[in-house]
Write a protein that binds this DNA or RNA. Structure first.
Lengths: 114, 114
DNA sequence: AATCACTAGTTTGTAAAGCAAAATAGTAAT
DNA sequence: ATTACTATTTTGCTTTACAAACTAGTGATT
């Protein structure tokens, strides 16, 4: 399967892709991610979604979490990106380009249908 | 919840949105949809995904299927869009605009992170 | 000291979705 | 007859979404 096919995994993977973009920039912990995401229109991604997703990403070896104490509250689990995670991030970027181009094509070729 | 928030429903709903775009143009049957989608990079969306999705869209009242005989093989179930479906299509178009803008922002503001 | 508000993460349980695969069925060519 | 292509439905397994409950730390208010 070519890297740039749009699979349903892709459709589901946009959130994971966005997390990889964020964590690639610098280590993030879950709570901060949900705040950062809301700045990009992902309003209130539930923690019941984001924490299990981070755990599954760690299980896949894309990120690694490290507990660190905080003076402002309980410990924070900072996630760092791995080499595998960097690869996955690049694949996501390519797939996102393809997806958005193709969806826009599909839409634009039917612009005048009401 | 504001219409233009990106929800996880949105992430899952891209395929449904694309089906609404197609069926809004003219009636389609499942098999033809999967062929049309492959022209837009949605390579081989499995029939185990597409047929149940069409059925759930009919259940939601977005489309209506009508069986019609074919000279080239078994009957085809042509799906027609409903008024509710047209509304859902418009909502999808708005949400897609928001999603792609926000994801592109998130990516572009971190362009230089390797 | 007790409560509240905010931060922070894990776990649990249910519902829904994704999808491979099998079952059914029609046409047409070999 | 068999194969090949078209076409839809159904079954069963796995994964995902996520609300809700639970644990736990800090700091301010009562």
């Amino acid at each position: 399967m070519p890297q740039n096919d749009i699979s349903s995994q892709m459709l589901k993977g946009i959130l994971q892709g966005c997390l990889l973009i964020l964590i690639n920039q610098r280590p993030y912990y879950g709570y901060a991610i949900s705040q950062e995401l809301s700045r990009y229109g992902f309003a209130d991604v539930p923690k019941g979604t984001i924490y299990p997703l981070l755990m599954s990403m760690e299980k896949k070896g894309l990120i690694i979490g490290k507990m660190q104490p905080s003076k402002d509250g309980p410990q924070r689990k900072y996630y760092h990106i791995t080499a595998t995670g960097k690869q996955a991030r690049q694949i996501f970027l390519n797939k996102w380009d393809t997806l958005s181009l193709n969806v826009n094509d599909l839409i634009n070729e039917r612009r005048n249908d009401s």
